[in-house]
Write a protein that binds this DNA or RNA. Structure first.
Length: 207
DNA sequence: TGCCAGGCCCTCTTTAGGGCCTT
């Protein structure tokens, strides 16, 4: 059964290339529109969290100091995901931290990432904002907890992904939109979405 | 020493610039 692993990181900043590290990770496994499993943990990477980030995420230096080592958490997360294709909101951000944290352990990070932000730009041109919270409000998605904590944001992103897949079924007749179709759609211009779906369905019946 | 993201997308574009989105 095709699964997608929806991930969200909280971090000390925007760029692992500039030394920023993950402070919390959450992964929600989605199968046929249902959440079937979850993984969440704070992690201690041994770096200080700024006052701005403490206020933004609610994750304090004391919380991270009491958390398990980043290496242990990321190894567990890697095993949890396995080869499952992944998704995230603004996936370029989470993909960079996924790759950077796993690279420190010598672990591969080859999973393809679908992006609910790119897909939402394609499918919901009427949206005033493509922030995760704004899209959740637009679609009346259920609240999942404090925004900017990893599990709450991963749950909302998973609900947004389910909404996207539902709309692909209803609007474009894609019976079971799989990860490959999501990747194809986010890589094409908005006006080319219907044609891309037609081509994908013709090549992969049941996609 | 001081500074520092990266990728997508739109437009007053393509020999570029700026806003959005993630923390």
């Amino acid at each position: 059964m095709p699964r997608i692993a929806v991930i969200d990181f909280e971090t000390t900043g925007l760029s692992p290339a500039l030394g920023d590290r993950a402070t919390e990770i959450a992964i929600v496994l989605v199968e046929e529109g249902r959440v079937v499993d979850r993984y969440q943990s704070l992690m201690n990477a041994g770096v200080r969290i700024s006052a701005f980030i403490e206020a933004y995420t609610g994750i304090s230096n004391a919380m991270v100091a009491a958390a398990p080592p980043a290496a242990q958490v990321m190894a567990e997360a890697s095993r949890f995901v396995g080869r499952t294709p992944m998704a995230a909101h603004n996936a370029s951000f989470d993909r960079r931290f996924w790759a950077a944290e796993l690279e420190r352990l010598g672990l591969p990070a080859a999973q393809p990432f679908a992006c609910t932000l790119l897909l939402s730009r394609r499918l919901y041109p009427q949206a005033a904002s493509y922030k995760l919270g704004a899209l959740a409000a637009l679609h009346a998605l259920p609240a999942a907890g404090r925004a900017h904590r990893a599990l709450a944001d991963a749950e909302v992103a998973a609900a947004l992904l389910e909404r996207i897949q539902s709309d692909l079924r209803q609007r474009f007749g894609a019976p079971q939109p799989r990860h490959e179709l999501l990747m194809a759609l986010q890589a094409c211009p908005r006006h080319a979405v219907p044609r891309a779906i037609e081509r994908h369905l013709a090549a992969q019946p049941g996609a």
